[in-house]
């Protein structure tokens, strides 16, 4: 009899406990403000868009009352990506932010399976009822950068160094090329890539050799979009400028993704900023304030998604006339007076 009482006691206790647990779980689900960030292979310190995304995430985390459980994961190999996304989509995270076109594609396929889960995708134009896609207009920014390079080039030879040869980087290249040709139809543009495998993002030594070879063939401005390999191009430009101090043969480099003007003041001509951080910040803000909208959001010049960096570090490189020209082109792109070719649409 005593044993029976004991079992009954345990049973009742556990019943009430589980009931309590269910209630508390439900109330927790209503205010779930856990944000999960999935980074692409570059990782949080790639000095590029992953880092930018991570910074936006950190800033949002400290500004809004987001639970400390919020976390980020880094995809090391493409095969890990579906696993991460499926695990995080089980309702634990309020909002999932996926960076990089590869992650974005997998989220696009997975989103129908988890209709209640909300996602933000960086570098994607996927339409789903529960996805906000941030589609950055890299070709617009690159067009302007190409135009600036053509304005400032003294040798009428400029170069482009991409990381891995993928459509996203080709989009940069095409925009850059058509921008330069818009200013000077006869300009010579050399287009090179570090490699065709993901190792190309982490090979600064080879990027440096590519840059040295270009500078030796009289290109004086190089636009680099090569992730961590970009460091090699920055090394190459300081090596070249160390050898000759003449102002008319000075070599320049143009950075990408985040503002890299500060790296070598006066030598980094400008940077094409892709404002992933502010767009992620505002997505989190909308989510916390319950104003989250879905759909494809284009982030071009008009919506302050891309821009050229002009600050104290490169101010002395541009005359008022240059600035006027550049702003004119920018306005023309916004008002669609200039038709910028998009590799995603014209390419292949």
């Amino acid at each position: 009899m005593q044993l029976f009482n004991f079992v009954k006691n345990i049973f009742l206790k556990s019943f009430f406990f589980s009931l309590f647990a269910i209630i508390s779980l439900n109330s927790y689900a209503e205010i779930n403000n856990k944000i999960c960030l999935i980074l692409d292979k570059g990782g949080k310190d790639d000095k590029s868009f992953n880092q930018s995304a991570y910074e936006g995430f950190l800033k949002a985390q400290s500004d809004f009352k987001i639970t400390k459980d919020s976390k980020y994961v880094t995809v090391k190999e493409d095969s890990q990506s579906p696993h991460f996304i499926r695990t995080l989509s089980n309702g634990d995270c309020g909002l999932i932010i996926a960076v990089g076109f590869n992650n974005a594609d997998i989220v696009g396929k997975m989103a129908q399976k988890f209709p209640k889960q909300r996602y933000v995708l960086v570098d994607s134009s996927i339409k789903e009822t529960n996805i906000r896609s941030l589609s950055f207009q890299e070709h617009e920014g690159s067009f302007l950068i190409g135009a600036i390079a053509a304005i400032k080039s003294k040798t009428a030879k400029i170069g482009f160094i991409g990381g891995m040869e993928i459509p996203l980087i080709k989009r940069f290249a095409l925009g850059f090329e058509s921008g330069a040709k818009y200013i000077n139809p006869k300009i010579k543009i050399t287009e090179t890539y570090v490699g065709v495998s993901p190792a190309a993002w982490n090979n600064p030594t080879k990027a440096k050799e590519l840059a040295l070879s270009m500078y030796n063939q009289e290109s004086d401005i190089i636009f680099v979009a090569a992730g961590a390999s970009s460091q090699g191009v920055f090394d190459a430009v300081s090596d070249m400028n160390k050898k000759n101090n003449k102002a008319e043969t000075k070599k320049f480099v143009i950075g990408v993704d985040s503002n890299q003007n500060y790296l070598i003041p006066g030598t980094v001509l400008t940077s094409m900023e892709k404002k992933v951080n502010s767009k992620i910040y505002s997505a989190v803000k909308d989510f916390i304030e319950n104003k989250f909208t879905t759909g494809v959001i284009t982030c071009g010049f008009a919506d302050d998604g891309v821009d050229w960096a002009y600050d104290t570090y490169n101010k002395q490189l541009f005359s008022n006339e240059d600035i006027k020209k550049i702003n004119k082109i920018k306005q023309d792109i916004i008002s669609k007076k200039i038709n910028v070719p998009d590799y995603y649409k014209v390419g292949k």
Binding site: G43, A199, N202, N203, P204, T205, K206, K208, A228, S229, Q231, G232, F234, D235
Partner: peptide, 13 residues
């Protein structure tokens, strides 16, 4: 010598 810092997996095979 050939570059100016260590970057992730810079040996690249």
């Amino acid at each position: 010598c050939l570059s100016s810092s260590y970057t992730r997996n810079m040996t690249a095979g």
